[in-house]
């Protein structure tokens, strides 16, 4: 994620849409990518990203500069995505048939695309599906976003040792998954 100047934040907090768009352009790739991997759905990633940026806009006035804007956005993005996943998990049974229809249609469409790329995405999806929401968030931030332990701890508001434990358990689970085939 690119750095954002204080002046831009102050302008955006005052309702300057051009300044807010600059923040969006610099941070939306991270927010969308994390949302997409945590929720495992393009539609949910859209909703989470919209929700996150509306929250950011409405609350920029209360941003205190005690932490960096990036950390603040990381935290909002991950928590919103995790909450969205939990909420949609409650409706999973009702959505199951709808999802299968969507996936079938999407699979046919994606078959036209690069098969190698699709195989990689499928493998990644299987790995992430094997993890709990908390482990998945840590793995996405570490492996896909390349954040270090300190940054992950700040984003998730947990201790560094908790980050370490979650990553270790996630990797042990993934090793077992690989052994099973």
């Amino acid at each position: 994620m690119q750095d954002i100047e204080k002046d831009t934040i102050v302008k955006a907090a005052g309702g300057d849409m051009a300044a807010f768009e600059e923040i969006y352009r610099k941070t939306s790739a991270f927010v969308y990518n994390v949302a997409r991997h945590i929720t495992a759905s393009a539609e949910d990633a859209d909703e989470v990203t919209q929700d996150v940026f509306i929250k950011i806009y409405n609350n920029l006035g209360g941003f205190n500069f005690l932490s960096s804007l990036k950390t603040w956005i990381y935290r909002i993005a991950v928590n919103t995505a995790l909450n969205h996943k939990k909420a949609s998990g409650r409706h999973l049974n009702r959505r199951a048939d709808y999802d299968i229809t969507l996936k079938t249609a999407a699979a046919k469409e994606e078959a036209k695309d690069n098969l190698d790329s699709q195989a990689k995405k499928d493998k990644l999806r299987r790995l992430l599906d094997a993890l709990s929401s908390e482990q998945r968030a840590c793995i996405v931030l570490r492996e896909i976003e390349g954040m270090d332990y300190k940054e992950i701890a700040a984003a998730l508001k947990i201790k560094i040792n908790t980050v370490r434990t979650r990553l270790k358990r996630a990797r042990e689970r993934l090793i077992n998954l690989n052994k099973k085939g």
Partner: peptide, 15 residues
């Protein structure tokens, strides 16, 4: 088996 699959995937971009 554990690290490489995550590095190989391209990032998603917001529509």
């Amino acid at each position: 088996k554990i690290i490489a699959p995550f590095k190989a995937v391209e990032k998603y971009h917001p529509p």
